[in-house]
Computed example of a mutant assay.
Amino acid sequence: MKYKVVGLGLVAFAIAGCAGKEEREIASGSFEYLEAAQHKSLDVPEDFDSPNYSQRYILPDVGENAPKDLKGKKLKVTPPSLILPLVAGTHVEEGSEDAKVLFDQVNDNEPLQKTVWDTVLTYLEKSSVGVEKFEKENNILVTDWVTEIREVPSSWYDFTDNLVTVKKKFKFTMTLAPHGRTAALRTELVDYVDEQGRAALDQVDLISKRTAESNFLNNVITEYDFGIRLANTQRIAKIRQGFNTDMGFDADGNPAFVVDAVYENTWPRLLLVLRKMGFDVKDLDQSTGLLFVQYNGIESSWWSGLFGSEDKLDIEKNEYRLQLGGVGEKTTVTFMDNESKPFDAKRITKIFAPFKDFMGNEDLDI
Results as ranks from 00 to 15, higher is better:
203 Q>S: 14
203 Q>W: 06
203 Q>G: 04
203 Q>C: 05
204 V>W: 02
205 D>H: 08
206 L>T: 11
206 L>C: 02
207 I>H: 07
207 I>F: 08
207 I>T: 14
208 S>H: 07
209 K>H: 04
210 R>C: 03
213 E>P: 07
213 E>L: 05
214 S>N: 14
216 F>E: 14
216 F>H: 13
216 F>W: 14
217 L>M: 08
217 L>N: 07
218 N>Y: 10
218 N>E: 08
219 N>V: 00
219 N>K: 09
219 N>A: 13
219 N>I: 01
220 V>G: 02
220 V>W: 06
220 V>A: 06
220 V>I: 15
220 V>F: 14
221 I>P: 09
221 I>H: 14
222 T>Q: 12
222 T>M: 11
223 E>T: 09
223 E>Q: 15
223 E>H: 04
223 E>V: 02
224 Y>Q: 03
224 Y>R: 02
225 D>Q: 14
226 F>Q: 06
227 G>L: 12
230 L>K: 11
231 A>R: 13
232 N>D: 15
233 T>S: 11
233 T>P: 00
235 R>I: 01
235 R>Y: 00
235 R>F: 01
237 A>Q: 14
238 K>T: 07
239 I>E: 10
240 R>T: 14
240 R>Q: 15
241 Q>G: 13
241 Q>P: 08
241 Q>H: 15
243 F>G: 01
244 N>A: 13
245 T>N: 03
245 T>R: 00
246 D>H: 08
247 M>G: 07
248 G>R: 10
250 D>P: 01
250 D>N: 14
250 D>T: 03
253 G>I: 09
253 G>P: 08
254 N>Y: 13
254 N>R: 15
254 N>F: 13
256 A>R: 09
256 A>V: 07
257 F>K: 03
257 F>Q: 06
259 V>P: 04
261 A>T: 06
261 A>Q: 02
263 Y>M: 02
264 E>L: 05
265 N>F: 01
267 W>M: 08
267 W>H: 10
267 W>F: 15
